Amino acid sequence: MTNTNVLLTGVTGILGRHVLYELLYLYASGRKMGALGVVIRTRSGQTGLERLKTIIAHRYRPAYLKGYAVNDLLKHITLIEAGIEELNAAHLATLENFDNLHVIHTAAETDLSNTSTANEKAFTHNYLATKHLLAWCTPKLYKFIFISSAFSIGHQEGVITDQYIQFDAAGDPVLNEEIKNRNPYERFKIKMEFELIKYCRQHGKAWQIVRPSSICGRMLDEPLYYTPTFNVFYLFGKFLYACSLSNILRMGEKIRIAANPAGSMNIVPVDYVAKAIVRSFENDAIGQLNAVSSRHVPVAYLFQSMCNYAGIKCDLTACEPPPGSMSVLEKQYYETIGPMFSSYLSTPVHQFDTVRLRGIMSDVVEADVVKGFKDLYEFAYENEFRSL
């Protein structure tokens, strides 16, 4: 068995910690040999080691890790206590046993709004930090696995393949100028994809891009439905919950939401994405891969389900209702999260091609997000949409 040496970023985040769980199980069970490194900064009075221990000992860690003691799992990890933008030569020297390094870069700021603040966060934390990480690890790098977003394709209709980045006759990447991104998060994701391929080609390094869609809680591994943070579509439920506490929401009322009534959203369980990453990152035949669900969730079902849980009704409209006709609840929605949601809910009808994904996940039963959505959402609601 050859050694698999991995450096993982973003382990305190939604996806990163689940990739960590998957890798830890493989190393602890002897299914993989090699070294596993993680990058964690000190934050909120906790050292990187304390934060790492909290993740590994978490009450919602997957059941497949229950048979392993925390200290035994920690033995498989080399910890670099730093922010990605702080990584330097001294940090790289700690990876002396990490030859032919595979870097799995999951760390990112996820802000889907279209504001100057969101632009600054995406530029600094997603784009510049990734470029710094890439240059820093180059001396030891074999392959850089960049976790992008299935939504970096922007407004797109029809069948969406894995090949967001095309190549010219010379094999150089070509960025499609017709991509219409909805926000800075998407724009810097696709820009980094393009620059990653160019950089790796110039330096003789392997690369891979994996693009999850909207991530929800676990639906494969017990305990089910867990996610450390409730964001993206969960934010609408969080909004309704907050409005119910402040008496903005009145039982039985109706909220009009600007959306494509025939539209849908691709929602994928976090454990499914983590398994797809771990199964694909050593496969050099896979350059670009959309880690998504085969079936979309209809927007009408999604929002009606969340509204029903809050005791109100939902009406999908072609455009935002006139300001003078808005209820207090509708005004609050369009002044806060509405602008972000509208750009996604108006997306043309589309479908992801999942042939390659299902090829590597053929023995994994794909969760039915529509069927399980009520249980998924109930878990979030009962936990008051708090970070767990």
Rank of each mutant, 00 (worst) to 15 (best):
L8V: 14
S152G: 08
A291P: 05
F379A: 05
N97R: 14
I277P: 13
D284A: 12
K374Y: 14
V270Q: 06
P139Q: 04
F230A: 07
V103T: 14
I84D: 02
D168A: 06
E22Q: 15
P173L: 06
N88V: 00
T138P: 02
I104D: 03
Y241P: 08
G324E: 11
E22I: 07
Y272C: 00
H102V: 11
S387G: 13
T4S: 09
K53D: 10
I277C: 04
L345C: 04
V103S: 06
S244E: 10
A262N: 15
M1S: 12
F385A: 09
G67Y: 04
L329A: 04
A93T: 13
F379S: 11
Y64Q: 05
C319N: 14
G311C: 08
F281R: 00
T317L: 09
Y234L: 07
T117Q: 15
E157G: 15
N97H: 13
A291R: 03
M33P: 13
L79I: 09
Y21R: 00
Q163D: 15
E120Q: 14
K189R: 11
G10Q: 01
Y381R: 11
R51I: 08
H18C: 08
F151P: 02
L7Y: 08
R43D: 03
S343N: 12
C216L: 10
N283S: 02
G372D: 14
V6N: 07
N71C: 13
L65A: 08
I267Y: 05
A300H: 14
E81W: 06
N181M: 02
P269E: 04
Y21E: 06
L36I: 08
S305T: 15
C243W: 10
G45R: 01
F233A: 11
I14G: 07
A274V: 07
A63R: 15
A69M: 10
P321F: 10
I160T: 08
Q163C: 13
S342K: 15
Y199M: 08
G13F: 05
H132R: 01
Q163H: 12
P298Y: 01
Q288E: 05
V299C: 07
C137E: 06
